[in-house]
Design a protein around this nucleic acid. Structure first.
Lengths: 359, 359
DNA sequence: ATGAAAGCGCTAACAA
DNA sequence: TTGTTAGCGCTTTCAT
């Protein structure tokens, strides 16, 4: 294979300089203060002046300098911290968030934080340093105290993390319930050896409020409720293809295999599929499989993965609404919004074969 | 299903105010200019003063105000315009981009632009308004003139768009070659009726330089080269699951079906799989299928999709490098970097059955 | 209703 | 090497 091709080209002209409110002001024969007021739809400008200023703005192609505005007023920027850009569930939230903000003056900017505390802190700080008007944190792993410290500085909504805070709003899906839906579904089908694949993250933070912890806990509770306490079987890897793969390699290589696997995320379930495929095991004939998140891949005919739907759309729009309330109406009382998930049964789960009795 | 649960909570304290260089300066008994210099690692500060200032910074927990810095100097922010947050190929580019920037003072912020011109323009303007130091545009659909107008204002690298510009750098994968790899592969297997699913986007821009156009053109060229000109068969929908699905419904319902389908993107190929599944056709027994992008889903055992690999990692790191060169070394000569793709053959393609002779 | 002017936190000439 | 100071583009009192 040939290496990359490289082509050089010419040129370099003097950079044009931007139009400021001063330009607009002089063009419209008004003060800069007047222009500023028009810009903000502030009180105390006659319709006539309004018109003149707007005219001048369009004629000159004026664009407000967001950073400069931010020095005194707002930056009109909403920051969204995203751990793991690859997670196919986040786009749903993000899309709905931006949609909700589309009519407003606010712009959404995404901060790619890694799955470790440091990089999440780094990008979060970066957003604060840029004086964003509000922050949406998607499943952050920082300790609550840290989040609250930031939330004291800037309006904040946390998505996908359980527990409440007085400093920020929370939008969360009831993961206890979601895990229960899956376990009940599998138990109803006659499964007993139901294993769970969980996510363990790095970092010092106590993860009791993280979705993965709550899903595992929901799994435990449901297993007990169904009298399957002795069958509780959790493998902690990560919510990723690799994580699901390695967990499944372990589970499916045992002398007594589980008859069903509940992966805490669809991506992990995909890894399980891969492992099962390699081991020559069929889903659902040899092992039932369920995921979580109901990502679009779960719906695919050849995959047809039973999953739990979280309505990311609703999460996103609510997060946007709550954040705007905090920013514009200066609300300080915090809100906890808990949405209920729904089960989406598909072909990846079915009754275990006759030979698969209890332990 | 019960509706969302809502819980209200209390509190509201006076917001603390931020530490500025003035605070740091007085604490360290130096001028603000000195602090500024330390901040920028600028020339002309004694090690002693360096130390005093850094000390004061950490003691006070000082964080520079990015917007204020931006008013005179840089914002240390790199903006990345992303059309379609759902495209699973982009995360690769983004990850490698951020990685490359990790050691530097720059921060990556992502601008979610939709698949239409307006929303892309909107988010791009927003990034310019925020005085980002550099912009990376991933497969933008704006006309080249528009891109160049922006590039005159701010250092810019365009990814995934063919054609060259004197104003910005380009990192692109050779889509003509990539399409050729697929067609050759299929033709070598004995296929003749090879159909192609393309992407047609909205917007007034002339799309001759867009990847989808080039891939379609590459397909045509390769078909001619292989003497299959009469078999050229392109269905234009979109690079999405739905697009692939509807195109495949059409193609596979014909009296004389193609023996192979080359979808311009893996996501579209996934839609084809879905359609084939619904129609009771097997891949590859009844129809061979190839995608493009080699996304992780293509590698899955149950899917095993033949695809073209683009090395997003290399694209991302090169884009970062080129952008930094433009920003820091003020390079003006533009660069075109063309990477070559590779074929990744998998089980979704095989020789057509005997009964599937030429038209 | 309108405008003059004082900052916001920082950078960069220029002086010392 | 260090400090002084004039902005950057906008918002926001406070007079007019």
């Amino acid at each position: 294979m040939s290496g990359p091709t490289l082509v050089l080209m010419s040129v370099g002209l003097p950079p044009p300089k931007r139009i400021t409110i001063a330009d607009v002001a002089s063009r419209a024969n008004v003060s800069t203060a007047a222009v500023s007021k028009v810009l903000r739809n502030a009180y105390g400008v006659s319709p006539a002046m309004q018109e003149r200023v707007r005219q001048a703005m369009t004629e000159l192609g004026y664009r407000p300098h967001a950073a400069a505005r931010g020095m005194r007023g707002q930056t009109y920027t909403i920051g969204v911290m995203i751990p793991d850009v690859r997670n196919p569930f986040f786009p749903e939230i993000i899309e709905s968030l931006s949609e909700h903000l589309d009519g407003t003056d606010y712009q959404v900017l995404l901060g790619p934080g890694g799955s470790d505390t440091e990089s999440q802190t780094r990008i979060t700080d970066a957003m604060v340093d840029r004086r964003m008007d509000g922050l949406v944190m998607i499943a952050p792993i920082a300790p609550r105290r840290e989040l609250e410290a930031i939330a004291k500085t800037v309006p904040m909504v946390v998505i996908g993390r359980h527990g409440r805070s007085t400093e920020y709003d929370t939008v969360v899906d009831d993961d206890i319930m979601g895990a229960g839906l899956i376990v009940d579904h599998l138990a109803d089908l006659g499964h007993q050896r139901i294993a769970h694949i969980g996510h363990k993250d790095r970092g010092p933070s106590w993860p009791a409020t993280m979705p993965q912890t709550v899903r595992a806990e929901g799994y435990r509770q449901a297993m007990r409720r169904r009298g399957l306490e002795a069958q509780i079987d959790i493998v902690l890897t990560s919510y990723s293809e690799e994580g699901g793969y390695s967990a499944a390699r372990e589970l499916l290589s045992r002398p007594v295999r589980p008859t069903a696997i509940f992966a805490g995320a669809d991506v992990a379930a995909i890894g399980v599929l891969e492992a099962a495929y390699e081991l020559g095991l069929r889903v659902p004939e040899d092992v039932s499989l369920a995921g979580y998140d109901n990502t679009s891949i779960a719906a695919l005919g050849p995959i047809s993965l039973t999953s739990v739907d979280q309505d990311g759309h609703l999460m996103g729009s609510n997060a946007a609404r709550l954040l705007l309330e905090r920013i514009e109406q200066k609300r300080h009382r915090s809100v906890l919004l808990s949405l209920s998930p729904t089960l989406v049964p598909r072909r990846s789960t079915r009754s275990p074969l006759a030979d698969s009795g209890g332990a």
